[in-house]
Design a protein around this nucleic acid. Structure first.
Lengths: 127, 127
DNA sequence: GTAATTGCAAAAGTTTTGCCCCATA
DNA sequence: TATGGGGCAAAACTTTTGCAATTAC
């Protein structure tokens, strides 16, 4: 595998955007190199994921989002405003222990988000 | 809203299938009434969800799955074999408290699955 | 007769595939 | 010159929309 300019741009875009869909990554990359095709972005994301440089997370509705694999964290997705917060994986350690004990289930906390309502949306709802 | 035959069939299908994608629901319904269009299934699922009779959950990759809203539970999705296990929502009570306290985040445990590796896949991996 | 509902077809959105050209070693 | 990579177009797949015909009240 060669780290071509396109792939580097995709990696940079993922790094800068934080959590981004392939579509968003593509737009970002095209800001620098307008001819880069979305097909290339998909292929690059797949490759970068195989290499362990990025990972994708299902935050809820619609497309998965990609982020760099440098700090593991658990996602808190607000299903009202769409904001993504992050908490340390240790937050789920206790739950993970429990699931392992009781169910034999080995939790991968980073692949799926926890869904709910964020602080500011709760404040708005409360009035 | 009228509970038309189509809508009843969709509800029945969701009930029987457990966790099913719109596509799977449609096939099931068409087993009984072959002319029912997938458009109708999508519309019925939306309606039934508004009424609180069904809810959808993102179990991981791809399409959301619908299930009847009669017992709330948390989903454990094995990303290896795709099996979906269920645990009581109380399992996450402590975590929910913590997130509420520390982040102001109100957890909705049922909308997204927890991802990981199930017992039998772990056994296989271990050898 | 009016309003809601359905089926069909088409559109829209996302992701994948096929193919040919180009760049690099 | 082999090999891998990229761009483009088209295909595949999922979901939504527009509309005319039908149904229920």
């Amino acid at each position: 595998m060669r780290m071509t300019p396109q792939r580097q741009l995709v990696l940079d875009a993922v790094r800068e955007l934080g959590h981004a869909t392939p579509e968003q990554v593509c737009r970002k990359v095209q800001g620098t190199a307008s001819t880069v095709n979305i097909t290339t972005v998909y292929r690059a994301l797949d490759l970068l994921e195989e290499l362990g440089l990025v990972r994708h997370t299902h935050l809820g509705h619609g497309a998965p989002t990609y982020s760099v694999e440098e700090h593991e964290h658990v996602h808190l997705a607000c299903h009202r405003c769409g904001e993504i917060d992050e908490v340390p994986t240790e937050t789920l350690d206790e739950l993970a222990d429990q699931l392992r004990r009781e169910r034999g289930f080995e939790l991968d906390a980073t692949h799926l988000a926890l869904s709910g309502t964020c602080r500011s949306c709760r404040a708005t709802e409360a009035g």
